[in-house]
Design a protein around this nucleic acid. Structure first.
Lengths: 345, 345
DNA sequence: GTTAGCACTCTAACCTGGTGAGTGCTAACG
DNA sequence: CGTTAGCACTCACCAGGTTAGAGTGCTAAC
């Protein structure tokens, strides 16, 4: 790709900063006046003409100012964007929502999403993708009613997963037997995670143990299936949303169609899971039409892993208009990924 | 209140029906042409003038057509509205979302909210207010980690409530002891509901039992508190929302401020709980400014209890613009309140 | 009591011209 | 030869004026 000279970059930066702040097309004369670049508006005009030709900025209509394009934001984000530092108070505020809820993953996610949308004025979505990392700590099978059982599964991260299931009453399984089965299951499957459970060996050993205990396979099989399901099922993924109405505050969503699109996207759990799930990089920025979900084509998404004390807790994304304060959003999420409670707990 | 003559009622009805369908102010001439009332536009004009004076309709501006006022809708809803019958297919569709999830209150609520917003094109919110009606069926205390315990509470409606709590290790409470305590608690508290638990006698008996079992009060008290909390706590209330973006489809919410207000209202769980909680009547209609929540002042809410096979399951509300199809919404909710699965399960 | 007729009102849509921010081009400057 | 001043041109936006249409209120006649 053609490398831009420094002056073009400075001009692009000025356009983007101004547009982020004021949401209005900006012209050469205005740049010359407001930003001290040491060159005249005519020169800026020529450079802007080049930038437009290269696709970094666009004019909404002939003879109006220019507006950054997705490609322009991309360049800015990748190469130009300064590393903003989060104000102390915000940092502490966010830290608080974590430290206050360390033992409760769901409260942590909920408060974190709220706190971030409060600090940034954007919308925040978070997902708990722990399912695959949780390790079984305790399994409890409890008879309830005729042939109904409740299965409780407690993990090392203190999450509790339930399944209510019907099991055939081929043999009487009362409280005592259920207790025995629970103890046995806990012994066999302790420390197993979802990956382990997909391992045949593991399950084979479990089946063998049931056999030794004279438990009917008709009873054992659905039970094992329920355990696997409880630990790894996708609908274990919980979505937390904060500040939906924030995004409606931005003038770009004064257009009802655009507002509808975003709200629609935020309502679809599956779409949000897809959005949050795929994350190769530590912090990922998706700009406008880069979004696979067309309903988000006027939005940018800044996505990060939540990592606390070396543990991976889930993913979180800040959603705003393409004209959003990328620098701030990134600094907020860097703060997340780096948050380490050791020093204060 | 002054009783309106039949002709005024017919005219009001025509205005409301037309406005519900087209969202545009309607004038005397249009009524005369479109609705066969057997009187001329001049007469209608006179009657409309009266209706306006009485506050049932308002003119958005001088010399424009009239629009129903909240008071007008109120009269319509209370006295005039026909009893629409829900199309067979919709009835079956809604019935399905219930029968498919009879054993899972949370899935039932979720699907019901979705189904209703799909059928009506309005937004639907539902709340599970069962907390107070659930009866304890089984209590299970499970040791996890150092001094941490998981409390599982299964109710007669097959809901599972969890609490993770820290209890002092004043004495060793291993799996065996925990099992004994669980069995004992289940025995003492079986069939108790939230009201029973607020009854001193009940709790006294529980405490006595702990004492007899040589369980330290420092251990017993937080445990009892957790049980009470798990059964009756307000954050047990789960809110289910369907079709948020539906409401943005209506022209009255093309105005971003109004859209923001509604979305804001739907984001505040506490507000929704308040909205859904208070329900003296079986089906209640709240019109426009009658809403206590000012963010909903441009909306109407039609609220009902969900009752299935004599059981009270929770409350559900349809939220739309004040210009909404009250008749349809009411018929949908009547369908809910009356739904009886006996005949097909 | 009902209705036809009429003067009047008000909005929405359309045009019109002026203003200002912006562009692109050209020629001159250092 | 890059930079800049100057200028003609474009276009959105705004204010003001006009018209058409839907509606009202009033009055007089049926």
């Amino acid at each position: 790709m053609l490398k831009l000279n420094l002056r073009k970059i400075r001009i692009l930066e000025a356009i983007i900063n101004d547009y982020i702040a004021h949401a209005e097309p900006i012209g050469s004369r205005t740049i010359a006046k407001k930003y001290d670049l040491g060159i005249s508006s005519a020169t800026i005009r020529n450079e802007m003409s080049d930038l437009e030709e290269m696709g970094y900025i666009v004019a909404p209509h002939a003879s109006s100012g220019r507006v950054p394009s997705d490609k322009g934001y991309r360049l800015y984000v990748d190469e130009v964007m300064p590393n903003k530092r989060l104000p102390q108070e915000h940092q502490e505020y966010l830290q608080q929502s974590i430290t206050q809820n360390l033992s409760h993953i769901d409260l942590l996610m909920r408060d974190l999403a709220r706190a971030i949308s409060f600090v940034t004025n954007y919308t925040t979505v978070a997902a708990d993708f722990l399912a695959k990392r949780h390790k079984i700590k305790h399994i409890q099978l409890v008879p309830v009613g005729e042939s109904t059982f409740a299965l409780m599964l407690i993990t090392d991260l203190k999450a509790v997963k339930n399944r209510v299931l019907a099991l055939p009453r081929t043999q009487t399984v009362g409280n005592a037997t259920a207790g025995r089965i629970s103890a046995e299951l806990t012994k066999i499957l302790a420390d197993a995670d979802a990956d382990d459970l997909s391992n045949k060996l593991y399950l084979g050993r479990t089946r063998q143990r049931f056999y030794d205990m004279h438990i009917d396979p008709d009873f054992a099989e659905p039970l094992i299936a329920a355990i696997v399901d409880a630990l790894s099922s996708a609908d274990n993924v919980q979505i937390y949303i904060g500040g939906v109405k924030n995004i409606l505050e931005f003038p770009e969503f004064a257009n009802v169609d655009k507002a509808r699109a975003v709200v629609g996207a935020l309502e679809e759990k599956d779409g949000l899971i897809t959005l949050l799930a795929d994350n190769s990089e530590e912090i990922q920025i998706i700009i406008g039409a880069e979004n696979k979900n067309v309903m988000l084509k006027d939005c940018s998404v800044i996505k990060a892993k939540i990592r606390i004390n070396e543990h991976f807790y889930g993913n979180i994304a800040i959603i705003g208009p393409t004209r959003m304060d990328y620098s701030q959003a990134v600094s907020v999420l860097q703060n997340m990924a780096a948050s380490n409670t050791e020093r204060r707990v």
